[in-house]
Design a binder for these strands. Structure first.
Lengths: 337, 337
DNA sequence: GATAATAATGTAACCGATTACATGAGAAGG
DNA sequence: CCTTCTCATGTAATCGGTTACATTATTATC
């Protein structure tokens, strides 16, 4: 592996001159430039980032932490992050924590140790205290997910409570009264908030949640399947199921269908996220859309602000959500016109 | 940000001693260790990776290049990579090229410049020549995808041609004769190979492909929709559609269903990859499964071999595929027992 | 008790780059 | 022709660590 010294020797100049040619910072005689460029060419030299960033103390790279890449939701958020990052010359690296919570701390050390300029959490196993202490040391933004009790750290999310309220209200307005909530319990901040919003809507309509209909199975297809099995064991199904994820909603619909129970006809199902499969499933899934691209863009913008001015105050952004009405919710009792 | 010097001063020792305490390489008197640890604690010191890796010339990190994270297929491959990497103390970083081919070269520079120890391509916009020249400089493995004409670089894939052959043969054995192939053309090596396998199976059965049934629409849900629209414009539908991706197969089935054409009853549809939605879709999708986890594991093992011994010869691994029979292919004409 | 071996720590070179400062050559001005 | 200025380039310090080697303190051996 050729180094700047090899190039300097080859070109018959000092390393400083080579560096100047590489960075174009000072003026160099054109013949010298040519000689250096020839040497670079000849030796197939590529500068080592380490030396450079060590001196400059910035890496132009940021880290995004996500739970798993199998969730299609994150794809668009990341695209939003990347679009802003690219314009500003930053690179985006992704890490998934998958089933391994210890991995997360390992990656975070990279930011702490200045191998990366900042970090965006789309998910975290860390508690609010840990995230806050990290944020005191380096630029941090939390996006799409909320961390209960976290203050003083920039974040960008939708208003999950209001979104759930709107979703459940829509169910109620369409004649569904006995409503089930399927989610990952209070493991994630947003699942909890969506539960709150569900309760709000029920209360406002003078309804209550049947405890049996509170399904803490998770957010995956499998979780939806488990939830359906639990419902099928009861002697009376709910009118509607509000799922905190599209995948769980689909797992549920699929399993119910095996028993001849069709969503949109025999039961109402509402998802969350508006993954692209929601549109293509049969029946197409009624769900709550998040502005994923914009979440990513705003998150990156906040992070950049923090990187460039570590003293800049934390901001909490709330972005608008939207109900996407398709086929999986029965529209009975709805007045037309 | 505290440095090793600050710690040394605080503890009243030299930086060398602090370094020894940090790395446990040499023996240090236990009181000294305590003093250093107290200083580290007090200053909230975190070593800067840059200095360390600059000296050691290894980063214990590898890069995985993938087209997009919205494809669920990659999730398991990455999990396989991570499981092996973690055991060996390596960290895995992901980058997506999304729509931006230039981004890929940017990230590759990081490996070239030794900011990362190696690279696994699950996809690449680079041609065989570019990948080969990169591989000459640093550890490279290509996995799950093939790059046409690439030699001398380790790879791990299934035998795409044989897999497609088996899939189409299964279609033919079940009475489907007029078969359509839906893929991304020859843009990807594996789409091309799967086409070859399709041709092989048809030829072996004395059949030929109707040119109109060669649908180069792509691998996404939307691509499947477009393909369905094209088929619906013809006056006669094919007996079966073999799609090079599950997503496109689902997009196709959904669009056909809008016209009352049900896969598994009125037409046969075969997917590829066995994403989890294949199991949950209605009708459940018959598809070709790849051993995603194992692809990832083997890829990482090959990369490690290459990192530890750059002289080690390249290996081409072919892993077994498997037909997963569900509901979307009609089983007409199949002899029972 | 003198000598050798060993343990603990310090000194300084080094990794690969950047950059402030020094130096020397040539041009411009008197 | 001498001084001054500019331009091109070299020298060396520096970033934050690691580590070979040197040095000192301590213990073991005869």
């Amino acid at each position: 592996m050729a180094t700047i010294k090899d190039v300097a020797k080859e070109a018959g100049v000092s390393v400083a001159t080579v560096s100047r040619v590489l960075n174009g910072t000072d003026r160099v005689r054109s013949e010298t430039v040519t000689a250096v460029q020839n040497a670079i060419e000849k030796l197939n030299y590529h500068p080592n980032f380490l030396g450079r960033t060590l001196r400059r103390l910035e890496t132009m790279k940021i880290l995004v932490v996500l739970p798993t890449i199998s969730n299609q939701f994150y794809s668009r958020v990341i695209r939003g992050i990347q679009s802003v990052a690219m314009l500003q010359g930053y690179h985006v690296m992704l890490v998934t924590t998958e089933n391994d919570p210890e991995a997360e701390t390992e990656y975070i050390e990279m930011v702490r140790r200045r191998l990366l300029d900042g970090i965006i959490f789309l998910f975290s196993t860390l508690d609010s205290e840990q995230v806050a202490s990290l944020a005191a040391e380096c630029p941090v933004v939390v996006a799409s997910e909320t961390i209960p009790g976290l203050t003083g750290v920039s974040s960008v999310t939708i208003n999950n409570r209001a979104a759930a309220y709107d979703a459940v209200r829509f169910l109620i307005e369409n004649g569904n009264r006995r409503i089930s909530y399927l989610s990952a319990g209070r493991l994630y901040g947003s699942s909890f908030e969506r539960h709150q919003g569900t309760i709000d809507a029920l209360k406002q309509a003078g309804l209550t949640m049947d405890e049996r209909f509170l399904l803490d199975e998770g957010l995956t297809y499998k979780a939806g399947r488990r939830a359906a099995k639990r419902l099928l064991e009861m002697d009376d199904l709910p009118d509607a199921v509000f799922s905190a994820s599209d995948a769980a909603a689909i797992g549920l619909m699929h399993t119910l269908m095996e028993e001849g129970i069709l969503a949109g006809r025999d039961i109402s199902v509402m998802g969350f996220d508006n993954n692209s499969i929601a549109e293509y499933y049969n029946p197409a899934l009624t769900t709550v859309a998040q502005p994923q691209l914009e979440i990513g863009q705003k998150a990156m913008e906040l992070l950049l602000k923090n990187i460039r001015n570590p003293e800049s105050p934390a901001e909490q952004l709330l972005l608008p959500h939207q109900l996407v009405i398709r086929e999986s919710v029965r529209l009975i009792g709805k007045k037309e016109g």
